[in-house]
Design a protein around this nucleic acid. Structure first.
Length: 516
RNA sequence: CGGGGCGUGGCGCAGUCUGGUAGCGCGCCUGCUUUGGGAGCAGGAAGCCGAAGGUUCGAAUCCUUUCGCCCCGACCA
């Protein structure tokens, strides 16, 4: 939609009689890209840096979400035996060029440092777009024997890719991520690692982000530059598009050969190691936004919400205020004791509670906390004090729980933990339902063109003849790409058929959708 | 990087065509009154009009260049 269109959507889009136009978030149904930006902005997650092209500032509320993602994932990596390390931001250009496909893939988006300290560098440095090469260099030094394997390393870092088009969280020039790099003695072991970490990502996405994902294998065209195989998790966004939310690569011996990473096997033979790499990025924050949020703004699952509950005191005079604040403080203290740590987590997660004593009208505060995605709102006023109750409102209505609920204080406190956990589950269920409702099985090209007409997109299971030509032709005509060939259990069971485009034989259906 | 749109107090915009030295709403600060879904009144602060050149007595406005953001496309987490 044009800028003009955006403005008009905003002008007519004010809710509640349109009297608060400036504060309104564009509607998903009217202008999805504008809606996404509004949610990110009003949710105080991030803003464009502007002074640095294509970069964003992740604001405290957004960074807190990333910290929660990091904390949980980091624990999962430790559970799988990986150890954190840190490699240089700058990578000698000669490293990047060592692996043929890798250079080809990344050359167009490299930022390069050519001078420092006022003098031209003898060899320019690339700002890492990813670290396979420099880590390959060090693996070669660290690995001598099969006894050094497997080597399981993870790095939390920033990377830079000179993107032509950026969108906050989904694609920025600089982004934060985690990159795992492992070396193994056999291809079987490396393949198992690729799958193991893919499942770590998939479980994390569903359990923590409440974001359902399809696990699958990338086609050759979509594969990571330098990998022999790429597995991925693909998430469903509310506009029907797919978001590649995480990837896990089988690097074969490509980087082993390029960087001479050899080990002496039990047999005594010198062999190249088998490597993997896998990563997820701050893009996940964008995925969470587009999975759960609504026209009122951001929606955050409790497991990644920086604040779980906002308490809004309500009163008419100072005497009432004093009494209400006592109760509010008491409830805040009690809630703050509640431990919502996931089972077997390596961290403790206690309820974060905000007591909102700002001098604003309650209604304004309601909107404010809704825009920030806070799962639970508690109102406490004189009427509640009289009855010994609290008023509870969950950010998103579900089948089980909707609207305001009035609960005896003790009962609320006793059930608050479970309510949050149920809410987490409910968000996942809602997201699953949305994905299911927008997932179709298509058999004819006519249906296909209809499904993907204009800007529209769904998750479509279609037969594909397995050729890159067909893949390219489909993309060319409809902008639809093959997101993945599903792993067992994540798509229709393989059954032979005919390609939706070419009519040639196909072994199984693949996931097709437009993508971010 | 191509096509289109847009840069004016924090946000949303008017003013630009037809040059005369900047305005509105919201927000912000102070005070009083308010407070169960976006409060009211009064007073106040805040903008070298994205930037740099140029034309002119005079530029937000005209011309050139440049930077950035948004949308669409090609490339990609």
């Amino acid at each position: 939609m044009s800028q003009q269109g955006n403005k008009q959507a905003k002008k007519s889009g004010g809710k509640k009689g349109g009297k608060q136009r400036e504060l309104a978030i564009a509607k998903r149904s009217e202008d999805y890209p504008q809606w996404y930006q509004d949610v990110v902005r009003f949710g105080e997650l991030a803003e464009p840096a502007k002074v640095v092209k294509g970069c964003m500032v992740i604001k405290p509320h957004g960074y807190a979400v990333w910290e929660k993602i990091q904390r949980d994932l980091d624990g999962r990596f430790k559970d799988t035996g990986h150890r954190n390390a840190y490699f240089p931001l700058l990578v000698p250009m000669s490293f990047i060029t060592k692996e043929a496909e890798h250079v080809e893939g990344f050359a167009p988006e490299l930022a390069v440092v050519t001078q420092a300290g006022g003098v031209e560098l003898e060899e320019p440095y690339a700002i890492r777009p990813t670290s396979e090469t420099i880590i390959g260099h060090f693996f070669a030094k660290w690995i001598d024997s099969h006894r050094d394997l497997p080597l399981l390393i993870n790095q939390w870092a920033n990377v830079m890719r000179w993107e032509l088009r950026t969108r906050m969280f989904l694609r920025t020039t600089e982004f934060l991520w985690q990159e795992g790099h492992t070396a193994h003695a056999s291809h079987d072991e490396a393949e198992a690692e690729v799958l193991r970490m893919l499942n770590v990502y998939g479980d994390f996405a569903e359990q923590v982000l409440a974001m359902p994902v399809i696990r699958g294998t990338k086609t050759a065209t979509e594969r990571f530059a330098g990998a022999v195989d790429t597995k991925c998790i693909e998430a469903f966004m509310q506009d029907g598009k797919a978001l590649q939310a995480g990837t896990s690569h089988d690097l074969g011996q490509n980087f082993g050969r390029a960087f001479d990473v050899k080990f002496q096997a039990e047999s005594g033979e010198l062999e190249y190691v088998w490597q993997t790499s896998w990563g997820v990025s701050t893009r996940l924050v964008g995925g969470v936004v587009m999975t759960h949020s609504d026209d009122e703004g951001l929606v955050l699952p409790p497991r990644v919400a920086p604040i779980h509950a906002a308490i809004i005191p309500i009163f008419r005079n100072d005497e009432q205020k004093a009494e209400v604040m006592v109760a509010a403080e008491r409830i805040k203290a009690a809630l703050s004791e509640i431990d919502i740590s996931p089972p077997r987590a390596r961290y403790r997660d206690f309820l974060e509670v905000a007591l909102d004593d700002r001098d604003m009208r309650p209604g304004a505060k309601f909107y404010d906390w809704e825009r920030r995605g806070v799962p639970m709102r508690i109102e406490i006023g004189p009427k509640d004090l009289e009855k010994g109750q609290v008023c509870l409102k969950m950010r998103v209505d579900t089948e089980a729980v909707s609207g305001k609920q009035f609960l005896p204080e003790a009962e609320f406190l006793a059930s608050a933990r479970q309510r949050l956990l149920d809410y987490q589950d409910a968000l996942l269920a809602l997201a699953r339902a949305r994905m299911a409702a927008n997932t179709v099985t298509l058999d004819t090209w006519e249906e296909f063109e209809q499904t993907f007409a204009g800007d529209s997109s769904k998750f479509a299971w279609c037969h594909w003849d397995g050729t890159a030509e067909t893949e390219a032709a489909i993309k060319d005509k409809t902008k639809v790409t093959i997101r993945c060939v599903p792993l067992p259990g994540y798509g229709p069971a393989p059954e032979p058929g005919v390609c939706i485009y070419s009519g040639k034989p196909s072994a199984q259906r693949v996931l097709m959708a437009k993508a971010y």
